[in-house]
Design a binder for these strands. Structure first.
Lengths: 185, 185
DNA sequence: GTGTTTCGCTACCCTAGGTTTCGATACCGA
DNA sequence: TCGGTATCGAAACCTAGGGTAGCGAAACAC
């Protein structure tokens, strides 16, 4: 009778480097900015070789997306009313973008995606879609409305980050919430 | 008596290449996307040498910003009410971003600016500030409110462009206007 | 023609993403 | 303890693109 978990495959087992690489990615991006956070530097910060990074992730974009997925986690969808849910979600993503390294990495990979259709596909599918689906479910809004919601919320936060290098201040996040909510009443 | 216009300086006069380079920039970006629209390709499309481009513009970012300034021109600030002015401005920038090559170039240079403080300074000073000042004057709003307005309008449009590769559809631009206007009532 | 400046061209430097190669290492089973 | 297998690290390498340097040719004024 075959065991439920197949026997470990032969050969040297892979080292568990994901957590270390994610941490190294964020700290390197925070310290040097997105463009100068090269894969080589990230690998060095994680204490592994560059080739090992490329054995796990096919491209820098894939690595950053995975790192962001790890850093963001699932959207909190607390709140009984749709207004509460949307407000919670906006404050949550604003706070995440404000975390050290996260906003830079997000804006950077988004930037790269503009002129790289393959990366755009990765970003839309692996990053945006899960949040879009969760929001569609929680809000009961059609896809195009949720996409519009994401465009406005995320776009505004990233534009501020990109233009000033600093995340949006709390007062402006509150204003953003107050601007968006009535449009979905 | 010295002439009002100083005599032409000695030596071979500079060729007037700005118009040709701007046209070549937009068409090349439209055809190949921002990242593959290299300075060398743009120069070739304009029928000049790469070195001549770098004699006019110190970096690719400077070139793109100049090209965008040329493509955008001044904001139309028509309308008697502030609501009319803001609505006109949003539709105007949405239309500009929808023009072939313009949206790609805008999103691309914005992307590069994320991890390049020097380029970010250029973008904020030479591109955003003139429009910000004109809007402050026309709307009678303080700087931080106009910056917030720009973040929401431009950020939403660029996020849509970056995520889908297509400019925002008219219906969504209308929704954007209807979302923003009440917040500035 | 002479002086001055810009032009195009070529070669070059540097960085960074990504690949290839190869010897060293870790694990399993016999 | 030894063989089989797969991974690791290190280094060399390729390609693309931003940006620079040097040089002879061309365009103007005088």
């Amino acid at each position: 009778m075959a065991p439920a978990t197949s026997a470990r495959p032969p050969g040297r087992p892979r080292a568990g480097v994901h957590a270390a690489v994610f941490a190294a990615t964020l700290s390197t991006v925070q310290e040097l900015g997105y463009a100068r956070a090269t894969v080589e530097r990230i690998a060095a910060a994680a204490g592994i070789a560059k080739t090992t990074v490329y054995r796990r992730w096919p491209s820098k974009g894939d690595l950053i997306v995975d790192c962001l997925l790890d850093a963001f986690g699932p959207v909190p969808l607390e709140g009984r009313s749709r207004a509460e849910i949307m407000s919670t979600a906006i404050h949550w993503i604003a706070a995440k973008i404000g975390e050290p390294g996260v906003g830079d990495a997000f804006a950077g990979v988004f930037s790269d995606a503009v002129s790289d259709p393959a990366l755009r596909e990765i970003l839309a599918t692996r990053f945006q879609d899960p949040y879009r689906l969760a929001l569609q479910d929680a809000l009961g809004e059609p896809e195009n409305r949720v996409l519009f919601f994401i465009d406005v919320a995320v776009g505004s936060l990233l534009h501020r980050m990109g233009m000033t290098g600093e995340p949006m201040a709390d007062a402006d996040v509150v204003a953003l919430v107050e601007m968006i909510l009535p449009a979905f009443r």
